[in-house]
């Protein structure tokens, strides 16, 4: 098995830390059913809510950003989030694609 895509997201996380920003790594650790990004996909979020990378196809990123900011505010080291299939009501966070994912948040410290 080969992988033709290299996410340079940890390199970017390091740049953010060097610029004195607080950084949370959000990593897809489990998926069930059809999910847009595979296990190991990652995004980073800083205390202002700037983010880079992705953990889904745009379905849950806003919730992940909120949770990451919360983690920094509460000064907690880590947290696990699970996202399930959304019902169809507009703007609700969930995976329209019908999958489920678990995302792990951890602060760089």
């Amino acid at each position: 098995m080969k992988n033709s895509f290299d996410e340079k997201i940890l390199e970017e996380a390091n740049d953010w830390v060097n610029a004195n920003q607080k950084v949370v790594l959000a990593t897809v650790i489990q998926t069930w059913g059809s999910s847009p990004r595979q296990v190991g996909s990652r995004m980073i979020v800083n205390e202002k809510g700037d983010f880079s990378g992705s953990v889904s196809g745009g379905c849950v990123e806003s919730a992940v950003v909120r949770e990451c900011i919360g983690l920094i505010k509460d000064n907690k080291p880590c947290k696990k989030l699970e996202f399930k299939v959304s019902n169809e009501s507009a703007w609700e966070v969930g995976l329209a694609c019908g999958g489920e994912i678990a995302v792990y948040l951890e602060q760089v410290n």
Partner: peptide, 23 residues
């Protein structure tokens, strides 16, 4: 993740070594 771990991951990628992160 400790910053030190993050930095060594980046270093290992640069040096083209094979590794895994265990969390």
């Amino acid at each position: 993740m400790k910053l030190q771990t993050l930095k060594s991951i980046i270093e290992k990628k640069k040096n083209k070594s094979e590794f895994a992160i265990i969390t």
